[in-house]
Write a protein that binds this DNA or RNA. Sequence first.
DNA 1: GTCGCAGCTTTGTATATGAT
DNA 2: ATCATATACAAAGCTGCGAC
Length: 296
Amino acid sequence: MNNHSSAEQQFLKEYDVNQYLRPSVTVDLLLFTVVDKETDNYRKRSDKALKILLIKRKDHPFQGQWALPGGFVSAHESIDEAAIRVLEKETNVSDVYLEQLYTWGDIGRDPRTRVISCSYMALINSDLYPVQPGAGAEDAKWFHVQDQWTQKKTTVTDNGFMTEKWVELRLTNDSDRAQATVKITKTVENGHSKVTQEIVDSQNLAFDHAKMVLYALERLRNKVDYTDIAFHLLPEYFALSDLQQVFEVILGKELLAAAFRRKIADKVLETNHIRRSAGHRPAKLYKYNPNWDDEL
DNA sequence: GTCGCAGCTTTGTATATGAT
DNA sequence: ATCATATACAAAGCTGCGAC
């Protein structure tokens, strides 16, 4: 570690740290889970809903608004370590699926100072729901996640085309509501594509967190088919209809059972567990097959 | 009360259809 | 021919309800 040459040591001694701007770095966490919605008819299988954890801000800026759990990266830890620490402190969950998503560096995204934030997606299964809020955030709540595009426009430009899409994000629970409209612009010119997001309207949702949520949703949708992320949202044993519902809430559309069963057949292992007394034919329980992508 | 059965619901398999 | 998707339907658990 400390094997610098003397010339290098001399250089380091004279280096002026104030030569360049030193922005603050934060992490923001998108903690998702999928839970059963209550149903009136016990014979009917209960629907599932995608939920995200938000925390009510106690301080300025955005005081009283809802925000993703987050915190500053300190000098003696890596960014990944900061993400794990913040997740544990704010939500009391540890040892879960964690994935870095994107680095957010827009000028002025934090009114206090220049802050660059790394967003992380964490997935927990419904057994762990509800998560106990940590000591640092007594006002943490789960919000039902819904998004849909309301308007889409494609225009042809000189060397390509541009599509603008307005997406409405709604985060709701029994007593609270946060929502935002984000305009996503995709330009393709000379074979290069570029995507920009702009928050056109934000109610009760702090910072640029609407963008982070939408980005995470897109990542979930893109990865659900070819990775194991869906299984992180389920307990160890689950019925195939549970798995199908997780896919459905992530993708935002209904799937056909017969086709779905064939598509994910390799990813699951049949067990001899059975879930009975549910007002209908008992379901065989399956578990994740860690060797599903072994061939090749 | 309880027996039997129609009917609802979801699971799970078999077969048909369609694209390449 | 092969693959994915769509349709069709049988199997099974449970309730509601009438007959007794």
